[in-house]
């Protein structure tokens, strides 16, 4: 019983971290109508950057975010500008291929630099744990959850309290109409993708501090993140948050109460079942026929 309770708590905390990783995916889908297969790899890149800063220069991972977030922001900017913007026709297929290619290149590079070995990010708050109702939770989960809430809150404010956010939401609702009312959709797209990628740096740091990883982890990650955004409803930020919590809690509970072997499978199967009943996901709008 206590174990199950503990796994629920842990699931909620790590759910926040996954939400931070998934929100980039859902944002770029909403605005660019692009499924960014590279998202999992970008998480890993963010993790490796924090890892490198910490192990080579002893820069604290939290402080290191001041470097890694802008770096990934620029990387995202470059990817959008160089590879996504030129796509005019067949965007669905081509964007998948392009982002997959980007993921492969990054995976290859990370593998070349850091090798195949699993690594993890260390800091005093990663190794320390506190006792919550008889349950030991590593400090990093609490810090990660808090950081996720702060950053997601910032994104929320950006979306709902700024001119940029208004233009962004208009673009999500109707790309063509946004162009007609004079929104610079191209600029919004590039910025959104860059911001989404920048946020992923933080998600990556937390991922790397809570999980041992290597370049190959990207496959595992992207499959989970994609599941999260379809369960939540594609393009919905709140949906991504709720779905992350559902995923991590269900995975942790199944791990503890039954077996870790089946935990991920259970979540995948759960998502597919939800899609049968509610094809648009939990918080997605039903797809309108274009008539």
């Amino acid at each position: 019983m206590n174990l199950v309770f503990g796994s629920v708590v842990l699931g909620i905390l790590s759910g926040g971290i996954y939400a931070l990783m998934a929100v980039g995916l859902t944002l770029s889908f909403g605005v660019l109508e692009v499924i960014n297969i590279a998202q999992g790899m970008l998480v890993v890149v963010g993790a490796y950057l924090s890892f490198a800063l910490e192990s080579y220069w002893h820069i604290d991972p939290l402080l290191g975010l001041l470097i890694t977030i802008p770096t990934l922001f620029l990387l995202g900017f470059g990817i959008e500008w160089a590879f996504l913007r030129p796509l005019k026709q067949d965007r669905v297929a081509l964007s998948i291929l392009v982002t997959y290619a980007v993921a492969l290149i990054l995976e290859g590079l990370m593998g070349l630099w850091f090798g195949d070995n699993f690594v993890a990010i260390h800091a005093w708050y990663v190794d320390a744990a506190i006792n919550v109702f008889g349950l030991y939770i590593a400090d990093i989960y609490l810090i990660g959850f808090a950081l996720a809430i702060v950053l997601l809150g910032a994104v929320y404010l950006l979306l709902y309290r700024s001119k940029f956010g208004a233009a962004l939401r208009a673009t999500v609702q109707n790309r063509e109409a946004a162009v007609l009312i004079g929104i610079d959709v191209q600029r919004i797209s590039t910025l959104t993708f860059a911001i989404a990628t920048g946020l992923t740096a933080a998600g990556g740091m937390l991922f790397g501090a809570t999980t041992a990883f290597n370049a190959n982890s990207m496959l595992d990650l992207i499959s989970r993140l994609l599941m999260i955004i379809i369960l939540g409803g594609m393009g919905s930020m709140g949906g991504a948050l709720v779905a992350s919590l559902i995923m991590l809690v269900s995975v942790d509970v199944v791990s503890v109460a039954y077996t870790p072997t089946w935990s991920t499978f259970v979540f995948f199967a759960l998502t597919v079942v939800v899609m049968v009943v509610r094809p648009q996901g939990l918080f997605g709008a039903p797809p309108a026929r274009k008539v």
Binding site: V92, M227, I229, M234
Partner: peptide
Amino acid sequence: IHSFVIVTIA
């Protein structure tokens, strides 16, 4: 098509 793609990956 987007959800189709993702479910097939799943």
